[in-house]
Design a protein around this nucleic acid. Structure first.
Length: 275
DNA sequence: AGAGGTACCTGGCAGC
DNA sequence: TGCTGCCAGGTACCTC
């Protein structure tokens, strides 16, 4: 569920409290995430100064660099992960795997029931890290436009939905927003990526950007829930036009929304509005 | 090289 | 009520 908007909202929510703080202590209760949390993470992290939090795709990068060199705490929220600020006195609950203590009154808490998330330590140029080096363009950057998608897609015989969910093409477009953006652009999700005109890809890039930006905006208004909240992860309740609406009436033409499987993932679409 | 499938994990729900 | 089985989702990695 944390798609790009949730990750970006987390970043913005945490930044004012976290930037400029020093890491006082690290508690790891459960190191078994997507990859094990490095055993020496505490040794690396404690005492570090957090200069900034950046985002690349759905990865959060806590910049802990010193004059001695570049160093980052890399965090991925996976599917069910949250990072919240709690009072250090707050007893840990189920799936509260990691605490990063920043002061007497401030503690970052990582919770992730399914443990698809990640917490790694990266020294050296963070953009050269294997997980980040091959990522595609940021969907909210100027580099993401119709010409880019057109160029990238010409040789591809894959469905457009799977194409825009490929993080090596464009980062951060998950299942929900892929469905919504394709509906907004009027493109059938099974259409082959390499066969779509530049003009239609222009509609699609606009739809992806617009959908993500709207979600970030919606998240911004509920940011207090996300950071230091009551345990509710604060996933955005956007009113989806197609996602999860199989059998319900299309908001545009009233025909029932259909569902199909693409790459083991559910795709929702309208047969009349998406061609 | 591209496409397709698999694994990882838990909570929630449907069906028996 | 309790069991089983399936689904959700991101993404690296495997195989063809």
């Amino acid at each position: 569920m944390p798609e790009l908007p949730e990750v970006e909202t987390t970043r913005r929510g945490l930044l004012p409290s976290v930037r400029g703080r020093n890491v006082e202590a690290l508690v790891i209760r459960e190191p078994r995430l997507r990859w094990p949390i490095p055993r020496n993470l505490a040794a690396k992290l404690v005492g570090r100064h957090i200069h900034d939090i950046r985002r690349r795709g759905k990865y959060l990068l806590f910049d802990c660099s010193t004059q001695a060199g570049s160093a980052h705490l890399l965090v991925h929220l996976g599917m069910t992960g949250t990072l919240r600020i709690v009072d250090p006195g707050t007893p840990p609950g189920r799936h509260d795997h990691v605490d990063v203590r920043l002061s007497d009154t401030l503690q970052l808490r990582f919770n992730d029931p399914r443990r698809f998330g990640a917490m790694l330590w990266v020294e050296g140029k963070v953009e050269h890290h294997p997980l980040l080096a091959k990522l595609g363009v940021e969907p909210l950057s100027e580099a993401f436009d119709a010409e880019y998608l057109f160029r990238q897609s010409r040789s591809r015989r894959v469905a457009i939905k799977q194409f825009i969910m490929d993080s090596h093409v464009v980062t951060g477009v998950g299942n929900i927003y892929a469905n919504e953006a394709l509906f907004a652009a009027g493109i059938h999700p099974a259409r082959l990526a390499g066969r779509i005109s530049l003009a239609r890809l222009a509609l699609l890039t606009k739809a992806i950007r617009g959908t993500l930006e709207r979600a970030i905006k919606a998240g911004g208004s509920s940011i207090r829930d996300y950071v230091g909240g009551d345990g509710k992860p604060g996933y955005f309740q956007l009113d989806y036009r197609v996602y999860g609406r199989a059998g319900m009436a299309c908001s545009r033409c009233s025909l029932p929304i259909r569902v199909l499987r693409q790459g083991q993932r559910s795709t929702f679409y309208c047969t009349k509005c998406q061609t």
